[in-house]
């Protein structure tokens, strides 16, 4: 089979553009740090000499409702970010382990969504009229489901001993792959009219080879951009679900859960609200910056506008 007319690769020009993009670089550094923190959470906690479950009753003022003794939520040499009011658990350990849940669930859900969305989208785009019509209705259905409401119902009925973070990622992905699928289908429909795709099909390449070698490379740029935008959305959904009490189970920490329990402490211990709020904000901002940078670098129309 001749491979002469091939899909355009992600141009090296785009990488050069990304390297010059200050917003993207800032976002990438923060996002990279968060991922690193999530991956090395056990190590970081060990470095601090703390774990996220041990109660430190002695560090709380029980008569005043259990607020941490000392300023800024009881920050000390041992507890770098202070302790959690009401329990005295080390906040540094809870924050880094919370990053595992927040970042991990968001990444996992996004990965699954891309997998499902691209699979369905490409199949609909390449398939015949009837397959396209059928799959498109399924995509419409998924897009019309209210994610948060449906996720709450689903998470409320599954047995409690299922692994929660995996379950969260799956539920968010299963309810949220519609957008990716629609974009993939649209791009596939455009790409299949291109000469090199038509040539491959005329040459008798089976559909899966066309999909893998001719369509997917062309999908990389838009899907990468879209995935970078999905990531913060999924993070917000996870935080929302944990905030509403259907996320991870205690004692596993998550930023959304921390925000939820902080609502009763926002006057007595403001630092406790500030911490997960700031981290969520920074992480979301960094992912959005990365997504914007990618879009600017990869989107041909955007590039023309910028010139």
């Amino acid at each position: 089979m001749t491979t002469a007319p091939s899909a355009p690769p992600v141009p090296s020009r785009a990488l050069a553009a990304l390297r010059r993009d200050r917003g993207f670089l800032t976002g990438a550094v923060i996002a990279g740090t968060m991922v690193l923190v999530a991956v090395t959470a056990p190590l970081l906690a060990a470095l601090a000499g703390q774990d996220y479950t041990t109660y430190h009753d002695g560090l709380l003022d029980s008569a005043r409702g259990g607020v941490p003794i000392g300023s800024f939520g009881g920050i000390s040499g041992e507890h770098w970010l202070g302790v959690e009011p009401g329990t005295g658990r080390d906040l540094f350990a809870r924050v880094v382990y919370g990053a595992q849940v927040s970042v991990g669930v968001a990444l996992g859900a996004t990965f699954l969504e891309v997998l499902l969305g691209v699979g369905f989208g490409v199949a609909a785009g390449l398939g015949g009229r009837w397959l396209d019509a059928g799959l498109s209705r399924v995509i419409d259905l998924v897009l019309s489901v209210p994610v948060l409401v449906m996720a709450i119902s689903l998470l409320a009925i599954v047995p409690q001993d299922w692994p929660r973070p995996l379950l969260l990622a799956t539920v968010i992905a299963v309810l949220g792959w519609g957008g990716t699928a629609r974009i993939s289908r649209g791009e596939t429909l455009t790409l299949r009219t291109r000469d090199y795709v038509a040539a491959a099909q005329v040459a008798g390449a089976p559909w899966w080879r066309v999909a893998r070698r001719e369509i997917l490379p062309g999908l990389t740029a838009p899907i990468l951009t879209y995935a970078a935008l999905l990531l913060p959305t999924n993070m917000v959904v996870e935080a929302g679900l944990s905030f509403l009490g259907v996320g991870v189970r205690p004692p596993t920490p998550s930023w959304g859960q921390m925000l939820s329990s902080a609502t009763t402490w926002f006057r007595a211990d403001p630092f406790y609200v500030f911490l997960p709020g700031l981290l969520l904000f920074l992480t979301l901002l960094s992912f959005v910056l990365v997504a914007n940078g990618l879009r600017r670098a990869l989107d041909p129309r955007q590039r023309e506008v910028l010139r």
Partner: peptide, 15 residues
């Protein structure tokens, strides 16, 4: 049992 933790979980020694 650690009753101090339980007391703190329920709102502290005032309540």
């Amino acid at each position: 049992i650690n009753r101090t933790s339980v007391v703190n979980a329920l709102g502290g020694s005032a309540v």
